[in-house]
């Protein structure tokens, strides 16, 4: 799917960092769930709704999460950023639906948006510039605005 997006549809917002599901730079949402586009085939998603970074906002019309990434400097080189933002979008949905993670203390009570909880859930998206603390802050800021 990643090559289909980048080479055949010209949607280069989804990045190829490893092509092996190791880095998360190609994260897109399929029917609202985040997946690595490099680990699936386009032909397996007939009828599915695929949302890439191109579907989340435009440079002159950023969504709140994108705005927060800019404000909090949640990136440097920017190559992992579309994947981070797609991943964070779906991740916030997972939290709002009450999905626990490895670090969630109480599996019944739902997760709070602590740095630890966000870091855990965003660890499938590598950032070599290491904007991690700012990514966490951007997600907290954006989620706080939505709440």
């Amino acid at each position: 799917m990643l090559d289909a997006l980048r080479h055949h549809l010209g949607l280069t917002g989804s990045k190829k960092g490893c092509d092996h599901g190791q880095c998360g730079a190609c994260t897109v949402m399929v029917n609202g769930r985040r997946i690595n586009a490099c680990l699936t085939l386009a032909c397996m998603h007939d009828g599915d709704e695929v949302t890439t970074i191109e579907g989340l906002g435009q440079p002159d019309a950023l969504n709140p999460l994108q705005e927060a990434f800019v404000r909090e400097d949640g990136f440097q080189c920017g190559y992992c950023t579309p994947g981070q933002i797609c991943s964070a979008t779906a991740m916030l949905q997972e939290i709002s639906e009450g999905w626990p993670s490895h670090v969630t203390q109480d599996l019944e009570a739902g997760a709070e948006l602590t740095p630890e909880e966000i870091s855990e859930r965003m660890s499938g998206n590598l950032c070599r510039c290491s904007a991690y603390p700012n990514i966490v802050e951007a997600i907290r800021v954006a989620a706080g605005k939505q709440a």
Partner: peptide, 19 residues
């Protein structure tokens, strides 16, 4: 100050080499 290249990078519209 925020990076002026930020809006392009967060929307996937900054053009990297292989794009």
């Amino acid at each position: 100050l925020d990076r002026p290249d930020g809006p392009l990078k967060v929307t996937g519209t900054a053009t990297y080499a292989n794009e």
